[in-house]
């Protein structure tokens, strides 16, 4: 309960900060729509030339795009901004401000995960949901309750995997405070816009086993369009829990490595 209350407070303070920059709302709205239009147009152009991309048609690829937008919106809503406050030049671990974060009487991993909220990402979340629903209504037989349930489980697993990857990379900052993993990750994450199956074998293995961003979007989209079922969903749920535990372990090991910095 205490943690829920804290999250509420974090959201409230972030909202107050955001409200100081009201003109940014229109800029964020513009960016969200541009992002959506470009992504949809890319698919329309592609499927104007072919009906089938390794077994994926326009509506199932749109579902995948919807999942991609939802997952990246949730990342940008709180996971991304909260974790990024630690990483990089002039950030907390670099300048020693992390001391104050460690001293707070609350679980450190909880704090660094939920601290900062970028509420404009709700626009992207909404648009992603709209794309997903639209694509599902396009298909002739709509998914039943079980498929929806499995889809939600797969989506949660995907978000947990994303969080675990980001947390693990953030943990590396304790060994090397200045490096730019978020940008590398952003670049790789773009590969998750398209189904895993279209990539050459080497890239596919990389996106499944090494940096599993391909799994995050492909599996939920496959579940909702009925291409895959319960066993795979439980497999990635198990994998996501494993990754989460591993990343938390790595992060806590990293904290022990931390020695403050001063001017």
């Amino acid at each position: 309960m205490r943690y829920l209350k804290l999250i509420k407070v974090f959201i409230k303070t972030s909202a107050q900060e955001t409200l100081m920059y009201r003109a940014n709302f229109w800029v964020s709205l513009l960016h969200a729509f541009l992002n959506l239009i470009v992504a949809v147009l890319a698919l329309v152009i592609l499927f104007g030339q072919t009906e089938n991309l390794n077994g994926w048609n326009l509506s199932s690829t749109l579902s995948l795009l919807g999942v991609y937008l939802i997952v990246s919106a949730i990342r940008n809503l709180f996971i991304g901004p909260s974790l990024e406050a630690l990483v990089g030049l002039g950030q907390e671990v670099w300048n020693g401000q992390f001391d104050f974060t460690l001293l707070r009487p609350v679980n450190t991993q909880f704090l660094i995960t939920f601290r900062i909220w970028r509420l404009f990402s709700l626009i992207d979340l909404f648009l992603g949901g709209a794309v997903l629903l639209y694509s599902i209504f396009q298909t002739p037989q709509s998914p039943n309750l079980l498929a929806w349930l499995l889809f939600l489980l797969a989506l949660v697993a995907g978000i947990l995997i994303l969080y675990a990857i980001l947390l693990a990379f953030t943990a590396l900052v304790f060994w090397n405070p200045g490096y730019l993993f978020t940008w590398v990750f952003d670049a790789i994450f773009q590969l998750a816009r398209y189904p895993l199956g279209i990539y050459p074998v080497g890239v596919r293995i990389f996106l499944t086993w090494i940096i599993p961003v391909g799994v995050i979007t492909t599996i939920p989209a496959q579940v909702i369009s009925g291409q895959t079922g319960a066993p795979i969903v439980f497999l990635i749920l198990a994998a996501s829990v494993f990754l989460f535990l591993f990343a938390s372990w790595l992060f806590n090991k990293g904290i022990k490595q931390y020695h403050s910095a001063s001017s």
Partner: peptide, 24 residues
């Protein structure tokens, strides 16, 4: 190394398009 990371990021969209079209 900073600029290599940037350059890597700019390479990705055309590379994704490469994979998509060659798969298609």
């Amino acid at each position: 190394s900073f600029f290599f990371v940037l350059a890597f990021g700019w390479m990705i969209p055309p590379l994704v398009a490469l994979f998509v079209w060659s798969a298609a």
